[in-house]
Design a protein around this nucleic acid. Structure first.
Length: 405
DNA sequence: TCAAGCTAAACT
DNA sequence: ACAAAGTTTAGCTTGA
């Protein structure tokens, strides 16, 4: 394909009718299954509640961070010991977020109970109980997409179908409720490591390009180049997309800031042009007052000239992230346009876009053939200095999908 | 009683 | 003091 690139205005404009089609089509949801799930979760949550009250010595509103904090930090005096620091919230209270509670899991039996309660309660209230009420007459859920985010990504609301659980087994149980209609199956195709590939392309870093050309596991490849563990390389690869510093990496890997700095220095020694590109976009943002994507979507960053160090640092991270995240959105949008143009609805009905993933409803048994038609469109929509790769999987619902070939 | 702000958590 | 980008949703708290 790689014809001429559209302007962002034209791209956004052309995408609108496709989004409206996707919204109108909707996606089928297995309501009885969710109702059954609801009963199970209700029961498990009630039991957890009782255990938590017993562990605390009294009843309280577990959903209230304030009351929960009082129980954990004031009554039980949990602090995790020596060099454990519990973050404070904006209002100076000790945070009860999962990342903090995780530091206290071994300190008292109430902590793991709370974490389990929180996970189940979130899934129950946000998804299991709510989704059935959002199912229309046609048995399908119709989200609403917008393109008004800072970097040009889509957002989805009423309900948000871009944050349906997937990470845990419990979460996958909810995703399983999203099904294909009778005689059809779901086909999901996602871009593999698209943001890192964009960073490789923009920076033209030979090490990063080599890593992408060599194998299918980018984290292993960068780890090999650096001579560190795969999980370290993976953490840095992700972190760099957000402009993460030593503090963030140290927290993430549970290592000292000094060690984190060593890893980051080592990373940039191996990928010097990536480092240079990051410096370059920051300088450019400073000069021009904005950062921009491949197609020129601008994000204005007046804070770069301000005197507030925290805001300035934030804007500097955005200057790096915006071109990456925004260009990802543009590539996916262009692919959606081209797929819509080339693939008839009866062959593959596009239902969802989840940033780097497209979900289609297709006649049963056609997955292999349809994927062979769509994947080249997605992979060839633009030419970068590294290959663009997609992965396809298919199945009866959004949770139980088998990779194709 | 309602709205706005805060906290937490789900996803990429 | 801050520390990792972008979203939406739910429940609690607080103040009008």
């Amino acid at each position: 394909m790689t014809t001429k690139l559209p302007t962002i205005t034209k791209l956004d404009h052309a995408l609108e009718p496709i989004l409206r089609k996707m919204e109108t089509r909707g996606m089928q949801v297995d309501v009885p299954y969710l109702e059954n799930l609801a009963e199970r979760f209700q029961g498990e949550i009630s039991e957890l509640e009782q255990k938590i009250y017993r562990a605390a010595g009294h009843e309280f509103t577990i959903d209230s961070p304030r009351q929960l904090g009082a129980v954990i930090y004031d009554e039980l005096h949990l602090d995790g010991g020596e060099d454990i620091f519990i973050r404070k919230t904006k209002t100076k209270q000790a945070s009860t977020a999962a990342r903090e509670l995780n530091k206290l899991v071994d300190a008292h039996p109430i902590v793991p109970l709370i974490l389990e309660y929180r996970e189940k309660k979130k899934l129950l209230s946000t998804y299991i109980l709510t989704l059935p009420g959002q199912v229309a007459e046609d048995g399908r859920i119709h989200t609403t997409y917008s393109i008004d985010t800072a970097a040009g990504r889509l957002s989805s609301k009423n309900p948000n179908l871009q944050n349906i659980p997937v990470r845990t087994d419990e979460g996958k149980g909810i995703r399983r409720a999203f099904v294909a209609k009778k005689g059809y199956e779901l086909l999901s195709i996602d871009y593999s490591q698209i943001e890192l590939r964009i960073a490789a392309h923009f920076s033209n870093d030979p090490g990063l390009i080599k890593a992408f050309t060599e194998g299918d596991d980018i984290h292993a490849a960068t780890a090999k180049t650096m001579g560190v563990d795969r999980r370290v390389a993976k953490a840095i690869n992700f972190g760099l997309l957000f402009g993460q510093g030593t503090f963030g990496l140290a927290e993430n890997l549970h290592i000292s800031q000094a060690d984190a700095k060593t890893f980051i220095d080592q990373y940039f020694e191996n990928f010097p042009k990536l480092h240079a590109w990051m410096d370059h976009v920051q300088e450019l943002a400073h000069e021009k007052g904005y950062a921009e994507t491949l197609l020129g979507r601008k994000r204005f960053l007046g804070e770069l000239k301000g005197h507030n160090a925290a805001l300035r640092a934030f804007a500097e991270r955005v200057a790096i992230n915006h071109p990456i995240q925004g260009t990802e959105a543009e590539i996916v949008s262009m692919a959606m346009l081209e797929v819509d143009k080339q693939v008839p609805e009866k062959t593959a009905a596009m239902l969802l876009q989840v940033h780097d993933e497209l979900v289609f409803e297709i006649p049963k048994g056609t997955a292999k053939k349809v994927a062979e038609q769509i994947r080249p469109i997605m992979e060839g929509i633009i030419k970068l200095s590294v290959p663009i790769v997609t992965e396809a999987k298919a199945g009866p619902n959004w949770a139980e999908m088998i990779p194709l070939e």
